[in-house]
Write a protein that binds this DNA or RNA. Structure first.
Lengths: 107, 107
DNA sequence: TCCGTTAGGTTTGCGCTACCAACCTGTTTG
DNA sequence: CAAACAGGTTGGTAGCGCAAACCTAACGGA
């Protein structure tokens, strides 16, 4: 009911603080492992794990599991799509913010 | 467990898309009524109603109920605190975004 | 006058999702 | 052997979103 004004529609998958943090960190590093991401974002293991699964399902990141000296190691990187989507999200936020200056008088 | 890097902690009360939209719209208009906000944000009545209640409880907006030509009319405006908090949130997002350019090499 | 409709909101019920804590497997280290 | 690490799964709680029911008050006929 009722179309929202342009620029107010945010992609929840990306907007979610935990995932926004993950994606932002990934934007700066090419690739990162699980432990690095956990420290960087402050998320709990379980939470980080499930967010990564969702991001992978949405094809925003690739996840590579391997063993480094017999210890499991989960390596994560942004996909081209992921890079594109996060950039688009920042632009969307910018548009939303700029709405604060737009004028629209009720009544 | 594990402190997140600076700048990654977002205020959920404000970050939430629905409320971010409401607050953003309010930033531009001094005051707005319920119907105006509903059209601007695209939220359903119920949803808008409960968000407004939460924002009022957090003292980010003031809500004034009155009658305009015999019809109930709910008038909403940002408080000084609300104005401050939303501005702070945009700055926080800006900091987060700028983290994308920061360097931090895992491994 | 009685009845249905419209308008502005609030409340309620339900499904989905995020969050944390706890537990689990396997390995390494003290 | 015990404790810690890497990574994940599970269970429970809390919050959001929608739709729908509800409330009050005014309007509009017939």
């Amino acid at each position: 009911m009722a179309e929202p004004a342009e620029g107010l529609v945010l992609d929840r998958l990306i907007h979610e603080p935990g995932r926004l943090a993950i994606l932002t960190v990934l934007s700066s590093v090419k690739a990162a492992d699980f432990v690095f991401l956990q420290r960087a974002t402050g998320l709990t293991k379980g939470n980080l794990s499930s967010h990564l699964t969702k991001l992978e399902e949405a094809a925003l990141v690739t996840i590579e599991k391997r063993f480094v000296r017999k210890l499991p190691n989960t390596n994560v990187a942004l996909t081209a799509l992921g890079r594109k989507r996060i950039a688009a999200h920042w632009e969307q936020l910018e548009r939303l913010r700029s709405l604060s200056e737009a004028s629209a008088q009720p009544e």
